[in-house]
Design a protein around this nucleic acid. Structure first.
Lengths: 189, 189
DNA sequence: GTCTATAATTCGATAGAC
DNA sequence: GTCTATCGAATTATAGAC
């Protein structure tokens, strides 16, 4: 692992453990066995650290759902693919995914607004899948906005499950199948 | 509203807006149009403020699920009642419910451990309902731990929905019915 | 890249008069 | 209960030598 990768990995672990606001530059330096001043070789400021980590993973989710929207899959297949993406990212990078839930509030002013904009856009894309499914009679006639929140609620807790539960439960294929069998019957006609 | 109620309500609004760590005693005093020193007429310390708010709402959820476990309802009915309780609390007290998701990490040492213990106990109670439902053939044979997380994921996002969405969508009866029709088919045989 | 030293600010909390 | 004044500690970030 490069020094830069080690830096961001350690930062992620510390943010997860204490929260971004509570983690200090000194804590991070200590965990990296270096001096606090060295932190600024990797990031401009503490705010810049959170900024990079958050927008990188946000963009990852957008790339995923944009692929889905252009895939030509049926709406139920698109939801299955959405589940697969969330399970995979939550398994491979649970700490960074966790930031999207726990730490976005700590972004600074204009960047906070940008992030909320991206999050709203993501939810609109999910609603687009749901509305298309209702229109084409794959899905029953539910409230797309409310069910969007509910489905994303199911998926957004995966990262903490991966961090808290036993290792043998983290088989992504099994997790994906369990969630698929829970979510789809609630949507289909 | 009593002065004490006004104090805690304003604190909740400020914590929701900025996060507990970022909210300062001075911010709170300004919002209450009083002096920073006066804050300590209501709480011993800043940590004590979060402590009271968090454990009070945690106890509320435990009271609810304990009633369910002693109710004699069938497992599907118990899940319906669980949904009702979450929807109701998330509608009536969204800010305080939000603390359970966003701010528990900021509790101090021993109290943090106590809170995590209470949260784990709550999840065990939900799993108890699910296991009972599987055993009595109401529910299909899913993984109780994973589905517990998934169901609670659906429910734990209600508070932010109530804070972000349009007022006409906040009819608890409608929300409850939408979620019920989404969740139950994923559980039943 | 690494360190020492420290500037500049902000915070939680208290003492004590009214 | 309310205020003035302030202490002591902790924080981010930088300057500058190596």
């Amino acid at each position: 692992m490069t020094k830069q990768a080690q830096f961001f990995q350690t930062a992620l672990e510390l943010i997860h453990e204490k929260g971004f606001k509570a983690m200090t530059i000194r804590d991070l330096a200590k965990a990296l066995s270096c001096d606090p001043a060295n932190i600024y070789n990797y990031v401009r400021s503490k705010a810049d650290l959170l900024d990079q980590l958050l927008f990188e993973i946000s963009a990852e989710f957008h790339r995923g759902i944009d692929e889905i929207l252009q895939s030509g899959l049926t709406p139920p297949q698109q939801i299955e693919e959405l589940i697969r993406q969330h399970v995979e990212l939550s398994a491979q990078r649970p700490l960074q995914v966790g930031l999207l839930v726990n730490e976005w509030r700590n972004l600074k002013d204009s960047r906070l607004l940008e992030f909320v904009g991206e999050r709203n856009a993501y939810e609109q894309k999910v609603q687009q899948i749901l509305r298309q499914g209702i229109r084409t009679k794959y899905f029953r006639d539910f409230d797309p906005e409310l069910i969007c929140f509910t489905v994303l609620g199911c998926l957004r807790w995966q990262h903490s499950y991966n961090l808290r539960s036993q290792i043998e439960h983290q088989n992504p294929l099994r997790v994906r199948e369990e969630i698929r069998r829970f979510v789809l019957p609630g949507l289909l006609i």
